[in-house]
């Protein structure tokens, strides 16, 4: 078979592209540590979420921001028609330099959870806790967007995620007070 020298050059260039793409993906996984969203969040019944009966489930807590370490946070978000709780009514706020693990669950239908402009992006399927971790080193404000059509108010379903400077962050009442309250109630019940 006779192959023209130009064709040989094009073939080599095409192979370089393919090898390059694969090398890039491998670098992303090994270097910056990009991970896939998997089912590690576990399953959760839709009823406890819809009825706000979070004590009945092991792998989901009352929606809010929980501090788990100096620079690490767990954020529990419920997506429901047509709001993120928290996120829509009150912005989710964390300090810069934090590592955040999101746990997102749906109270009704399939929703999406995407921090606009980033690849922090997951489907929120009823019955499944979507878990993902991301680092936020720089301050900024991101929109939270539902990207799975969920009904007539889908286009209004949005929220806000704010990364504020460390000095301005004040871990507000939402989670710690509830924790203290819950601890007090539990203690009272046991007495």
């Amino acid at each position: 078979m006779e192959i023209h020298r130009y064709e040989k050059a094009w073939f080599v260039a095409g192979m370089v592209l393919i090898v390059g793409f694969i090398a890039t993906v491998v670098y992303g996984a090994v270097g910056p540590g990009i991970a896939m969203v998997d089912d590690s969040g576990g399953q959760v019944g839709a009823n406890p979420i819809a009825n706000e009966n979070y004590d009945a489930v092991d792998n989901f807590r009352e929606p809010g921001v929980y501090r788990t370490g100096e620079n690490s946070f767990d954020i529990y978000v419920v997506a429901q028609r047509f709001a993120f709780v928290p996120g829509t009514g009150e912005p989710i706020r964390i300090p810069a330099g934090s590592e955040v693990t999101f746990y997102v669950a749906s109270a009704d239908v399939t929703h999406g959870f995407n921090l606009a402009g980033t690849n922090v992006n997951v489907m929120v399927v009823p019955g499944q806790v979507s878990e993902m971790t991301a680092r936020f080193d720089e301050t900024g404000t991101y929109g939270i967007i539902c990207h799975e059509y969920c009904g007539a108010g889908h286009h209004d379903m949005a929220g806000t995620f704010e990364v504020v400077p460390q000095s301005q962050y004040d871990h507000d009442a939402t989670s710690d007070d509830r924790e203290l309250l819950r601890a007090a109630l539990t203690a009272g019940g046991e007495r």
Binding site: T24, G28, A35, T118, A134
Partner: peptide, 14 residues
């Protein structure tokens, strides 16, 4: 796309 857009911002690491 990969090095500026994808790796430039917050990304899922776990």
């Amino acid at each position: 796309m990969y090095f500026v857009e994808f790796l430039g911002g917050p990304t899922i690491i776990g």
